[in-house]
């Protein structure tokens, strides 16, 4: 590789370009689906799937960039006050195409709390978790949040089979590398833990916890941000 190339800058602007193109593609698919009078319902459903694939590609791209930056000490969270209810509703709205016409529901239930975190980073964590949840959920995916100490817990719960036994009740830092690589959801969890632990307040550090949902019986991914 020629010297003097700033890989972070290159990746940044390259991903920026790809995202621009993705944006245009998503707009086109969306408007075709909305305005076309000749498409059949099954065509429209195909287009919806295409739109979701594009969204997933986008999310993966951003995660790649974030991980790259974190590994190179180029990622510092920008802490803001976030009203979690609004924040989660925003995410749910952006994920609507994922559940449109599908036999499950995606909603926010009880998140009237304030959190302090980098909204852009957490949004990506939650989106990734939702993409994963749609693979396992039977009918329900619910987002919620509550206070813990001076921090906040954001939970993504579903009614699917839940986490594998060897992962259940584990915290992010306890999940071994081997475990992560064998699981489909592994990289998402690793990413979530990485972003969570970047958040600190006084002595506390963020982390994720893998639980069984008491309400729905499936997985409950809980993200604690101090």
């Amino acid at each position: 590789m020629p010297s003097g190339i700033d890989l972070a800058a290159f990746l940044g602007s390259s991903i920026h370009e790809v995202k621009n193109h993705l944006g245009l593609a998503i707009h086109k698919v969306e408007s075709l689906r909305d305005t076309s009078t000749t498409l059949s319902d099954s065509d429209k459903s195909e287009l919806l799937d295409l739109q979701n694939v594009l969204a997933l590609v986008n999310s993966e791209l951003v995660n790649t960039l974030l991980v790259f930056r974190a590994q190179n000490q180029l990622l510092d969270p920008c802490i803001e006050e976030v009203w979690v209810q609004t924040f989660l509703e925003d995410i749910v709205a952006s994920m609507q195409p994922l559940v449109t016409g599908k036999p499950y529901s995606l909603a926010v239930e009880g998140a009237e709390v304030e959190g302090y975190f980098d909204g852009a980073m957490l949004k990506n964590v939650i989106q990734t978790a939702l993409f994963n949840a749609t693979r396992y959920a039977n009918g329900i995916i619910i987002l919620s949040a509550w206070k813990r100490g001076s921090g906040v817990v954001i939970a993504i719960e579903d009614d699917g089979p839940g986490f594998p036994p060897e992962l259940e009740n584990k915290r992010g830092e306890e999940i071994e590398h081997g475990n992560v690589q064998e699981q489909n959801t592994g990289l998402g969890l690793w990413f979530a833990q990485m972003i969570a632990q970047l958040h600190r307040n006084k002595e506390e550090k963020g982390f994720i916890e893998l639980k069984r949902s008491t309400k729905f019986g499936g997985a409950s991914l809980q993200i604690f941000i101090p």
């Binding site: 995202k19 621009n20 993705l22 944006g23 245009l24 593609a25 998503i26 707009h27 969306e30 909305d34 739109q51 594009l54 969204a55 986008n58 509703e89 925003d90 709205a93 952006s94 609507q96 195409p97 852009a120």
Partner: peptide, 13 residues
């Protein structure tokens, strides 16, 4: 801030 790419629904909300 609105992040690209966004859907009509995102922008409206």
């Amino acid at each position: 801030y609105v992040t690209k790419p966004f859907t009509k629904g995102d922008l409206r909300t």
